[in-house]
Amino acid sequence: KRGLYRKRRGLYREGLLSDDGFRLDGRRPREIRSLRMRLGLFPRADGSAYIEQGNTKVVALVYGPREVRGPRSRSAPDQAVLRCRFSLAPFSGPERRRPRGGEGRGSDLALRLQQSLEAAVLTHLYPRSQIDVYSDGSHCCTGTTAAALAVLDAGIPLRDVVCAGSAALAEGTALTDPNGAEEAAVGPGLALALLPASGLLALVQLSARVPCERLEPVMEAAADGCRELHRALDRELRRSLRERHGEV
């Protein structure tokens, strides 16, 4: 326990923000990481998407909507059932994680994913069917965004593209979209899933101790990141659609 404390402090001392206002990786506090994405990369799935956000790489696949498998009690009479899975590759972190059969940490992230998507997918259009969403990556927010894109790719109507982003508080400054090193130093902070058109939040999760009066700037920073993400996604989406189908 003592060891952990030392380690954290070490990183803290290094300083997450330079005197000139740059973060460890050269970004300014409100900048998001570089973003690259692609839709429809796996023809066998009904929808698929890939997002690369900084070093985080996520693949998301969607199967459905289709008939509910298994007992009929699993289906809902008035809407589609959304089933989400979230898995992490054993080599996703700096140290290899032992794969833990299906559940484990994945399930918690899957719940967050599910919550974010349910707010966006127009499930009532597909009664008695199920949509399976699989997301594969090391970062929950990126995973959520990727999953939303995969749903989009599957042609399932969405209220809005869910843009998920996070922010952490370091040395009194809110950092948008913290990278791995920053998260390791100050904890995961605040995760948001934003529906950009309406400005509503599909997910709010705070997993770090943040003083109440600092919450607002942190929230602002996270939402900023989501909006920035949305702009980038929008650009990319239009570009890729143009590539595939000519001018829209």
Binding site: G26, N55, P94, E95
Partner: peptide
Amino acid sequence: FVKRTRAGAVVKVVREHYL
């Protein structure tokens, strides 16, 4: 976007580095 590897103890750490 440039990746810079910093070999820590034995784990390979990859950090983002923006120019």
